[in-house]
Simulated scan of single mutants.
Amino acid sequence: MAIQNIFVVGAGLMGSGIAQTAMTSGYHVILNDQRQETLERAQMGIESRLKHMVEKGTMSEEEFQDCMGRLKIDTRLSAAREADLVVEAIFENLEAKQAVFRQLEEICPDHTIFASNTSSISLTALAAATKRPSRVVGMHFFSPVPKMKLCEVIFGLLTAQDVLEDIKEVGEKMGKTLILADDKPGFIVNRALLPMLNEACVIVGSFIGSVEDVDNGMKLGCNHPMGPLELADMIGLDILLNVMNVMDKEIGAKYHPSLLLRKMVTAGYLGRKSGAGFYLYENGKKLGVNPVLTRRHSLEG
């Protein structure tokens, strides 16, 4: 099946990045969110990033206009009635994702593929909420989507082979390298990555090493391009916590989120998007370590 029209549900960081990548790859995209202001902010962000590409000379003005012409925003799920592919990119919650697919079930044509950007939730469970389980698949993109080359494709118990072939074509057209994972908790990347990120939080929370020393240790000692705490901030500490909770429930104590991670999220330190996580940020630029992680309290004085 030739996919031409993509409907993206969720206009946050991931959803807007997926929409941008799809439209710059030649697809017609409708970006959906319940809130008009969120959609307008996402549209402005996409436009700004593409204009920056024009300024750098990596995109022509004509290409810019063509790309923006392929993007529409809409608060209504009913706008998905001509979608060939739906990519759901809302928060990591099984019931919420199932509810989206149930609503789209009544709107989309029979041929429409339902893809989820989930990083941990069972695709078989998502597919069970639909009348088309063979057409449900995972497309786990990585942030920032326009720059990161990987797309992890996850097949559920009933995902059809022709769906995987169509997704392969879409992913390659978007310029992504695809890896294929069975429907097991955490799939490939998060299964390996999350224990490291969580243990980095444990090291800082146990006063074994500082934020900067942990990140420098992994960058300079293990040749990682980014330290685990910097990466956690980029992912979003709330998202990291949600995924850890899912995997803790599914797999066990190995993925139990650290006390420090839970405290950071409770305090509202969510990473880059909130301006503070393990580091402080201004306009996306890292300023330094969050001082709440370096200060010591005393009853003296």
Rank of each mutant, 00 (worst) to 15 (best):
L164R: 10
E165I: 14
D166K: 10
D166E: 11
E172W: 10
E172V: 15
K173V: 11
M174Y: 00
G175N: 03
T177V: 15
L178G: 03
L178P: 01
L180A: 06
D182R: 13
D182F: 09
D182Q: 12
D182M: 06
D183R: 12
D183E: 04
K184T: 14
P185D: 03
I188S: 14
V189H: 01
V189I: 12
N190E: 10
R191N: 09
L194I: 08
P195H: 09
P195L: 07
M196V: 15
L197C: 08
L197P: 14
E199A: 05
C201L: 01
C201V: 03
C201Q: 02
V202L: 12
V204R: 10
V204G: 11
F207A: 12
F207T: 08
I208H: 05
S210L: 12
S210P: 10
V211N: 00
D213V: 04
D213S: 13
V214E: 05
N216Y: 08
N216L: 13
N216Q: 13
G217T: 09
M218D: 01
L220W: 06
L220D: 01
C222T: 14
C222S: 09
P225V: 05
P225T: 05
M226K: 06
G227F: 13
L231C: 01
D233P: 10
M234K: 08
I235F: 00
G236T: 00
G236Q: 05
L237Q: 10
I239E: 07
L240Q: 13
L241E: 08
L241Y: 09
N245H: 13
N245S: 07
M247V: 05
